[in-house]
Write a protein that binds this DNA or RNA. Structure first.
Lengths: 149, 149
DNA sequence: GTTTTTAAGTTAACATGTTAATTAATATTT
DNA sequence: AAATATTAATTAACATGTTAACTTAAAAAC
């Protein structure tokens, strides 16, 4: 096999993408059952974990760009899953919070998420999973240092 | 920090996503200079490496779904980067090939891609990079075995 | 050999990724 | 205080991700 072919097969972005898809695949039905996308679920998880946040904070916590988040919040708000109230101290900011139905959805889905993690940890090995997390973290650090970003 | 918070911060899909973004970040300008997306570049690379392919083969090689690929091929065809001719043996299939301008674009961008890999390999360490590839591959294998998929 | 089924590819509809432009509110500058 | 610059968030425009419906051609079944 030529070097070109090998480097294409082993493209790092594609390997990372494939891994991500594999990890999420069997969890997606639990989200689809509530008509939620992976991104919408990230927002719900973040709000449940860290409490009310404005959209900029959510953007960082969920690793979503503002325009995506803006649309996601509109969608979740129209479905009664989150609530927005404008901040008193800064009228530009909107504080987002989970509604009671939002909490309930989290409570229904969270166990499926845990199950998925346990499944992956058992199959792959907890040690290797921990190692993978550390490698990914270090990879990002080293790249961003070097990119001066 | 609560278990919920920790598991959110260390969400495997988000870690994989972040790593992917870091890897690609400084390479994107080389693509933008030719008005290419990462996905369009994958198609060009695959055609350069493995020669003419039909759209189903490209779909597997580039890890893109058919609807996305369908639009990407239309775009690249309209820009004269690829060419399509319907197969004689099976009128349903379209054979896609790189045009001469398509080859030239590959030749201009490929060195930037190699530079990026060398940069990452140097910063992160070739051994760790190899280990990461192996872990990602094994993760996918183990998950897909268990998912019976 | 005609009906039925399967397969390749496209289109549709809606959500997200991405960059740039825009709006409204706050901070700075002068 | 008025003009200017920043900042939070939205909107716009276009490409992609994703599932389902659709079209056409080939294969199988009868």
């Amino acid at each position: 096999m030529s070097d070109h072919l090998r480097s294409f097969d082993r493209s790092l972005p594609m390997s990372l993408l494939r891994a991500r898809e594999a990890v999420m695949k069997k969890f997606m039905p639990a989200l689809k059952a509530h008509n939620l996308s992976a991104q919408q679920w990230r927002v719900i998880r973040a709000l449940e974990a860290a409490g009310d946040m404005d959209i900029s904070e959510l953007s960082e916590a969920c690793y979503l760009l503002m325009p995506s988040l803006s649309r996601i919040i509109q969608n979740l708000e129209s479905r009664g899953i989150v609530l927005r109230k404008s901040s008193n101290s800064d009228q530009r900011r909107s504080l987002i919070s989970l509604t009671e139905p939002g909490h309930e959805i989290f409570t229904e889905i969270a166990p499926k998420s845990s199950e998925r993690y346990e499944f992956i940890s058992e199959r792959f090995g907890p040690g290797k999973l921990e190692l993978l997390y550390e490698l990914l973290e270090e990879l990002v650090e080293k790249i961003e240092e070097g990119d001066a970003g």
